[in-house]
Write a protein that binds this DNA or RNA. Sequence first.
DNA 1: AATTTAAGTGTTAACTTTACACTTCAAATT
DNA 2: AATTTGAAGTGTAAAGTTAACACTTAAATT
Lengths: 229, 229
Amino acid sequence: MLDEYSASDKVLLALDCIIFGFDKEELKILLIKRDFEPEKGKWSLIGGFLKKEENLDEAADRILNKLTGLKNVYLEQLHSYSKIDRDPVERTISVAYYALINIEEHNEKLIDQYGAKWFSISEAPGLIFDHDIMVKHAISRLRYKTSKEPVGFELLPPKFTMKQLQKLYESILCEKLDKRNFINKINAMDILVKLDEKDMSSSRKGSFLYQFDHDKYKRKKADGFDFKV
Amino acid sequence: MLDEYSASDKVLLALDCIIFGFDKEELKILLIKRDFEPEKGKWSLIGGFLKKEENLDEAADRILNKLTGLKNVYLEQLHSYSKIDRDPVERTISVAYYALINIEEHNEKLIDQYGAKWFSISEAPGLIFDHDIMVKHAISRLRYKTSKEPVGFELLPPKFTMKQLQKLYESILCEKLDKRNFINKINAMDILVKLDEKDMSSSRKGSFLYQFDHDKYKRKKADGFDFKV
DNA sequence: AATTTAAGTGTTAACTTTACACTTCAAATT
DNA sequence: AATTTGAAGTGTAAAGTTAACACTTAAATT
């Protein structure tokens, strides 16, 4: 019982953030080109270090904000990575978070400043350290999470068409979905509001816009309803 | 970009381990009565600190081993907890792991030495720090995991009856299952070996013993098969 | 030989999921 | 004004899965 406080080794605690966005067709992640050592010039996740006065969720918020300018974003802790030589400079444990953002809302200037760029998952470059494995885990968690909880909406603008929603799920799940079955399923859950407004950008007829009804979902959930795609 | 390595604050990295066992009827967790400060005399999870020469998985193995004497145990990282004042002595981040062990195999002497005791989930005492929330998360993860992967067998002896397996799932899922449906489902997956041996302890007729066939499962999984309870 | 007690076994109905193709609408063109 | 164009929008039936349910069998005990 004596490997207690005093005898222990403190470590640097880093955070890395997998930022997901969806640009009409594809799921993307936001990566930065490092302009600092180590691995200067290579692509990586945005990261930072935990500060004394914050917990991990707060640190993740701060790090996400410094790159995107966004606040109140969906962020979830993923996993902690601890391979001894994962960071060549110093022993560092990294806690990975993933974020879901509306890609239309990020701050372009900040992104340029960081040399950051959106990459579709399939075209992303190899990343430094263990960041590739973090991304792999994040995608797998995203698949699970979006099919069990209505968090996919975080990746869309507040008003969206059924087509957009379907494309989003297709790109997360990496499979084609049947249009009628998809719409029937979503409608059966009765958690969207159909607006009187149409998106006219994709067809002459236009397609109706919908909104996710957070309150209705909360009430249904309290009554035992389960979201499922 | 300059909140880099040098400016950062190192922290103590702890690990806490939720150890699950199953004693014929009930899911249990192994807790220790602390004989050291802070919170001496109170119940808590077994824990320890990360050392320089090990990664988190190795540290969790070591900590599990010091209490149970067991090696090669099913261990999975759960979540990292970081509330600023979660540990009153010093800023500490804790990474929680959960373990599934065959309750018959742990080392009684070690357990006595640590003042440790098995508690059924419903009768466990309140725990120190944020350990109660860790246990809650662990149970919820265990439910998910055991219904998607054949890890429940880790909680049973190598040879078990269908009844035992059903009781195990009932106690993890907190619901009664239909005997015929359960057995039909398990048999349909075709991942158990029925032995010529019976357990005679529970009835005159005796009930056949089964073993989980790891290799067969691996082969089926590679062919796209999914375990599901 | 009769009794006891848990083990072992299949079928049907309810529900969920999948497969599938034509009509409607509004703008653009003639 | 009529026709064309292209995506939006819509329902049903078959297949598959899950859930409900009760009697027979085996071996020990009396």
